[in-house]
């Protein structure tokens, strides 16, 4: 699994960090998404898919 994020589209809702905190973080100043790892471990795959599905700005993309 390869993850990419679009910081320009991000609206800092925090949904990805709440869902997969080992993969996503937020910038302190405005909450914009920070990707912690582009290739998360297999046991995190479900959480990452959930995070992408609940992202309101559709800013998380996954390639399997």
């Amino acid at each position: 699994m390869k993850v990419t994020v679009e910081q320009d589209k991000c609206v800092a809702a925090g949904q990805c960090v709440a869902t997969a905190p080992d993969v996503f973080d937020q910038r302190d100043e405005d909450g914009v998404v920070v990707l912690l790892t582009e290739e998360p471990a297999a046991d995190l795959a479900d959480d990452v898919r959930y995070a992408a599905a609940v992202c309101p700005a559709l800013a998380i993309h996954i390639e399997d």
Partner: peptide, 17 residues
Amino acid sequence: HTRYRRIMTGPFTLKRV
């Protein structure tokens, strides 16, 4: 909208909350 929103979002990050 993005410009306005990013002025408001800082206090509401998961960590701050």
